[in-house]
Amino acid sequence: MNPIFEEIKDAIVDGDEDLAIELAEKVVAEGIDPVQAVQLGFIKGIEEVGAAWTSGEAFLPDVMMAADAMKAGMDVLEEVLAAGEGEGAYEDKGKIVLGTVEGDIHDIGKNIVGALLTSAGFKVYDIGIDQKAEDFVAKADEVGAKIIAASSLLTTTMKSQKVLVEYLDAQSLRDKYKVIIGGGPTSAKWGEDIGADGWAETADEAVELCKKLLG
């Protein structure tokens, strides 16, 4: 096995974004098999962090920095992976568009959900804060996401989650996407009331929810 795979794995476990990019660039430059780099390097690293998280040994900074490093490295490899280079193929577990709804600029909870989804093997497209329904849908359409995840921290902005579901209805796109919601003041009941496909209270539960919805 090429020793660079072990180095990539360690860079992910250490949450070293710069090193992850550097090693990914080396993979491209030296014509190393990118699929193997993903599977034996990036995925191995994030799995190790994920396992430590589950057992309570790793904490949020560990997981979030590992997810950032993974995303940065994978972005470098994106082109060669898309070109079908390497043995076999790499596929993510599903694409998810994630953002904070219109009128709300809180993003910590959303970022945690994004990191945990990434560490569970999903490809997350984080569109940021204060996002309109049409922005969620446009991104989901662009990347071929199956799940749209909308966060809200304020009782005054929760209704934007409802607007998102209504927008999908109005565009006759409701069946194309699963909509999941979360955030402090939201609840399972609110999710049901607005016709969302799922609600999760914590980031861990959001991961389980996505596995279920895409399973």
Partner: peptide
């Protein structure tokens, strides 16, 4: 403080 296991 933030609970570093859950982010809450």
């Amino acid at each position: 403080v933030t609970d570093m296991s859950t982010g809450s």
